[in-house]
Design a protein around this nucleic acid. Structure first.
Length: 256
DNA sequence: GTTTTTTTTCCTGATT
DNA sequence: TAATCAGGAAAAAAAA
């Protein structure tokens, strides 16, 4: 991981993933002209390959989400409504504005952003001396074992295409009505219980995501059952019904 | 390049 | 009977 980003040159062409859909198909706008990339599986590479000023609104949202995941920040601290802005607006925010919008995580995120802006490096990927100390920014309080991500980020229908893990794919599908089309539905939203309505459609979609046309619900469900061990999912004794476990995050409704 | 984790594939047997 | 669930085992793929 430490060697995932070693250069500080902003080169949009360094992005390596094939888009599953065109950018305009996904967002319906010509404003966001960068092709889709797998931010999450691509680690920090994306965020350092495009200057933050050129990030779209979605990129900003994804970056916050990425930071929460990567640095185990508690997204409860962050008011995502304040970050419905593009990269240029993000870069023009003062530290005070950042702290106001992102709470106790604000100082921490601000430093990470400045590092990317000024040095083209992501926070944990370069020399030790470039890293701010967590303690210095009093960010310990915003670290959590399972930070809650904003629903706003997941409701754009993009993360379902970006999520690297199966459970995140499922979660994002549940949170994206426009992508879901009745494949999954909540049984108990507050408890995180959901039902697979169209099992083969789900498998097909996951297969498309992984470029595997041999995927079946049988195999997908085996992968889901492995999540019982890790607390990502909990067993529900009903057919096609699953429940998010204590180690799953980002599915709760407006826990800000 | 190695190790660890996640996902895929295949399987047997049970349940709905 | 078909679909699903439960897991073991092993291999492949992805991530660290």
């Amino acid at each position: 991981m430490l060697d995932s980003v070693t250069h500080s040159i902003f080169l949009p062409n360094t992005m390596g993933c094939e888009p599953l859909m065109s950018w305009t198909e996904l967002f319906g706008t010509t404003e966001d002209y960068y092709p889709t990339v797998d931010h999450q599986t691509g680690s920090d590479l994306f965020w350092t390959s495009i200057h933050p000023e050129y990030w779209s609104k979605q990129n900003v949202c994804d970056w916050l989400q990425f930071c929460c995941d990567q640095y185990k920040l508690d997204a409860n601290c962050i008011s995502f409504s304040h970050f419905n802005i593009n990269g240029l607006q993000l870069c023009s925010m003062s530290q005070e504005e950042f702290v106001h919008a992102a709470g106790i995580c604000g100082e921490y995120l601000y430093v990470i952003l400045q590092n990317i802006r000024m040095h083209g490096i992501s926070f944990f990927n370069d020399n030790e001396e470039t890293k701010p100390s967590i303690g210095d920014y009093n960010a310990k309080a915003c670290l959590s074992a399972g930070g809650i991500k904003s629903q706003e980020c997941h409701s754009h229908g993009r993360t379902s295409l970006q999520s690297s893990h199966l459970w995140e794919f499922v979660r994002d599908l549940l949170l994206s009505p426009e992508e879901n089309s009745g494949i999954l539905e909540w049984e108990d939203r507050e408890q995180g219980i959901f039902r697979v309505v169209k099992s083969e459609a789900l498998a097909k979609m996951w297969g498309q995501r992984k470029k595997n046309d041999r995927m079946t619900y049988e195999k997908l469900s085996r992968a889901l059952r492995y999540y019982y061990k890790t607390g990502i999912l909990e067993r529900v004794d009903r057919r096609l019904v699953y429940k998010f476990g204590k180690n799953a995050h980002g599915w709760q409704e407006n826990k800000l």
